[in-house]
């Protein structure tokens, strides 16, 4: 059995989490493969919630599998697809099945996904969602009704250290911290000075919150340029683009892994934040290589 994530947050020096992306469909074999490969190598595994607004197997289903396989799941919950009733009901389901870590997110826009004509919900925003989980933890639903059996979620959220402009993002982030979270898994970050400033800002508001830097390996110059153009809040610096551009095609994934591992090592050695959250969607099977290259295995 994995150590409860809330215990890890209290005790461990350098925390490592990773993300698994559920498949579109009912065949869970690949997902289980990824879970089995990663569950003992990281402190907890996030399961994404219709990531990129693409309809998939649900995060709560993936978290149940992580739990069944002996891993420690973090349930990602977005505000995009469910109203306050549905979110609360799903949280009750998750908690009743032993899933007690939740990452509160706004969610990508419906427009970027594969059902762009769907009705976007956003009945709540991520700050309100954090408050909602605290409500459930206190034994009441959002309407103030008493629950038969309350939850005890360990609550996390995200932040965007590389946003431009950063000030409005930081005001929102401050509200999330004030609502009460135990951990933060940031959006992908490559500029460690930006990360440092972000962590400093957070520490002034809450010196106990554990901050895990988002690590997304970049595996080609084209991917980097695409991300800079199209993935909001992410900025891949020129030195990474140059490194990848001069690497022969065959060695690029390895190079991307090496760069990611380098960032992780620097974050750890300089104590910039409390850990890392590795997102390598579609290539989960290569996450152990990152961990190994970063000296985390």
């Amino acid at each position: 059995m994995a150590r409860p994530f809330r215990e890890t947050l209290k005790t461990k020096d350098f925390i490592v989490t990773a993300e698994v992306g559920p498949q579109k469909g009912t065949d869970t074999s690949k997902l289980i493969e990824h879970i089995d490969l990663l569950k003992d190598k990281v402190d907890a595994l996030n399961a994404t919630d219709n990531q990129g607004s693409v309809m998939r197997y649900p995060s709560v289903g993936a978290c149940m599998l992580i739990k069944e396989r002996g891993g420690e799941p973090i349930l990602q919950v977005t505000c995009r697809d469910r109203n306050r009733l549905a979110i609360q009901a799903d949280l009750l389901l998750a908690y009743s099945r032993g899933i007690d870590n939740v990452l509160c997110l706004t969610g990508d826009s419906i427009d970027v996904g594969d059902h762009p004509e769907a009705k976007p919900v956003f009945d709540l925003d991520s700050v309100q969602l954090i408050h909602l989980v605290h409500n459930l933890n206190s034994g009441r639903d959002m309407a103030g009704n008493e629950l038969e059996g309350k939850t005890d979620f360990c609550i996390g959220t995200t932040g965007t250290p590389s946003a431009d402009p950063i000030e409005p993002q930081l005001i929102k982030f401050k509200k999330k911290l004030k609502a009460g979270v135990s951990f933060v898994q940031t959006q992908a970050v490559y500029d460690l000075d930006q990360l440092k400033r972000f962590v400093e800002f957070a520490r002034k508001i809450d010196d106990k919150v554990r901050i895990l830097a988002g690590i997304v390996p970049v595996i080609s110059a084209r991917m980097a340029e695409y991300m800079n153009e199209n993935v909001p809040g992410v900025f891949v610096p020129q030195w990474i683009i140059d490194e990848l551009a001069k690497t022969p095609k065959k060695g690029r994934i390895k190079k991307g892994i090496e760069i990611a591992a380098g960032l992780i090592r620097q974050i750890k050695e300089e104590g910039i934040c409390d850990g890392v959250h590795i997102m390598f969607i579609g290539r989960e099977e290569r996450i152990p290589e990152i961990l190994e290259a970063a000296g985390l295995l």
Binding site: S109, F122, I171
Partner: peptide, 30 residues
């Protein structure tokens, strides 16, 4: 705000304060 958020911008704000879904539109929270 494309998502109707009440407590500040989402993480989708594009560089220069534009909206995630349309670089022609301003992020309301910016």
């Amino acid at each position: 705000c494309a998502k109707g958020l009440l407590n500040g911008p989402c993480g989708g704000t594009r560089r220069g304060g534009k909206c995630e879904i349309d670089p022609e539109k301003d992020c309301a929270w910016v």
